[in-house]
Design a protein around this nucleic acid. Sequence first.
RNA 1: GGCGACAUAGCCAAGUGGUAAGGCAGAGGACUGCAAAUCCUUCAUCCCCGGUUCAAAUCCGGGUGUCGCCUCCA
Length: 469
Amino acid sequence: MAIKIYNTLTRSKEDFNPGNQPQVTFYVCGPTVYDFIHIGNARVFIIFDVIRRYLQHRGFDVTLVQNYTDIDDKMINRANEQGITVPELAARFIEAYEQDVAALKVRPADLKPRATEHIEQIIELIEKLLAKGYAYISEGDVYYDTSCYADYGKLSQQKQDELLAGARVEPGEKKHSPLDFALWKQKKVGEPFWESPWGEGRPGWHIECSAMSTHYMNDTLDIHAGGADLIFPHHENEIAQTWGADGRPLARYWMHAGYLNLESQKMSKSLGNVRTVRELLVQHDPLDLRFLILSAHYRSPLNFSTELVAQSGAGRQRLQGMIDNLLVALKGAAAQQGEGEEKLQANLKEAQERFVNAMDDDFNTADALGVIFDLARNCNIYLKESHPYHQKLLGEVLQFYRDFNAIFEVLEISEKQELEKEISALITRRDEARATKDWATSDRIRDDLSARGIVLEDTPHGTRWKHKE
RNA sequence: GGCGACAUAGCCAAGUGGUAAGGCAGAGGACUGCAAAUCCUUCAUCCCCGGUUCAAAUCCGGGUGUCGCCUCCA
C-alpha cells in the first residue's frame, strides 16, 4: 500500500510516487539566521525530521536539503543593531540553530546550502527570467512579472484579482504590480552587496530556494516543505520562478506544517510572543517537547504551554518506564516459550500493522502514538502476569520499540548498566530487614537510595531499581 | 472587504457514512508492610439548527465561535 501525502497544491491526499524511486528529493525551507529559533520553528523541523526518517524506514533513499537564509532585510537590520557584520550574525545563529535542533534530536540535513554561497546560481536564474521576459528591471531592482504566470496564486488558492484587491499599495513603488516581487535588490548605502549584470545588489528572498534546489537536485523536487505561513507568498513565488525559468514544476508534493500557537495565537517573531527553544530547554526535557509536537497531526494547529508539556511528559514517562522494565525483564528471560504469550504476540502483530497504516496515512503521528500506548499496556500486562518471560518474544517487542524510536526518537532505549555492587548489597540488606519486618531499616535504605536518584520497585519476582527521572 | 482552515470528555488528541482510538488529570478497586510502578473499572450521543440516507462526528445548507492568509514570518 502506498504512502499518502496531503498535497497543499491539490488540497487532497495523494499516493506518494517519487519521480525516481527509491530516491526521494526533499527540500525543507530553513531558518533565516538572524535570531534564536522558537518552538514554533522547531515544530516544523521536528515534523519533517520524523517524516524523513519514516520515509527511510519505508525503504526510500532520501536526500534532504535545508537552506540557510543568510542575507535579507532582517539579517541586515539585525546586524546593524548589534554592530556586527551580516556574515558574523549568520555564523553565530547558524551555530545556535544547529545546537538547538540537535538538542531536539533533529538530524542534520544532507545538504545545508547558504544563499550567499549561491549568488552565481541566483544570477543565472534571474538572467533566464529576464531573457524570457518574465522579469523586468526597474531602477536597479529586478522584479518578477506575476502577470506572466496564469497559475500565480494556485498554491494559496487565490485568484490574482483577489490578491490584488487585498494588496497593500506602497507609495513610490518600483513594481509594475503589487503582486510582483523582487528577485534582486539594488544595494543601499552600507549594505552587503554582490556584483551583477544589473549593478551592485543582493538577491530577493524567494529566489534562493529556486536557485539552490535546481542547483543541487537539477529536477523537480519530490517534496517541498515548510511552515504554513510560507504558502503565500514565499512558495507561490518559488513556483512562479522555477516555472518561468525552466518550465517545470518546482515540486510534486507540497507539505505544510500547521502553526504552533501560544494561547491560541500564532507564535511569531513579529508578534513578539515567542518562546525560544533555548529558553525552553532549560526547564523541559527535549524529548518531552518532541513528544508534545508529535502528539498532534502535523497539519493541525497545536497549542503550546508548560502544562501541555507536562501532560505529554507524563505519558512519555509511562512508555519509558515500560521500556526500562522490558530491558530488565529481557535479561532474565528464558529461551523457552511461556504462559500467556499468544496474546502479546497477537498484540505485537496488530500494533505493527496499525503503526504502518497510521504513518502511511499522511504521517498520522497522533494515531501512531495511540498504537504505541496500546502495545505498552499489553506488554505491561505480560510483564506482570507471565513470568518466566520468553526471550524471543520480548526481543521482538523491544525491536518494534527500537524501530519506532528510530523514527520518533522520544524514548531512551539503552541497556542498563549492571547493578553496581553497592546498590545490590543495599537491596539485599533491605530484603533481609523486610524479612524480619524491620520497616524502619528497610525504609531508610530505600530513602537513602532515593536521595541518590535510585528508585526501588518491589515486584513478586524481586526488587528492581531504576534511575529517577 | 476577499480567501481559507478548524470546532470531539476537565485538558490534549485520533477518527470522512455503520452506532466514539489513545494520552493526561479525576474517582473506585486489585497488588504492596507502606510506597512506587503496573493492571482492572469508571468518565463524550462529537458547537447549534435544518436536510440527504436504512444509517452521519463523518455528506449538504444555514448559523455561531476560534484561528489564519491577503504584508516580513516556520
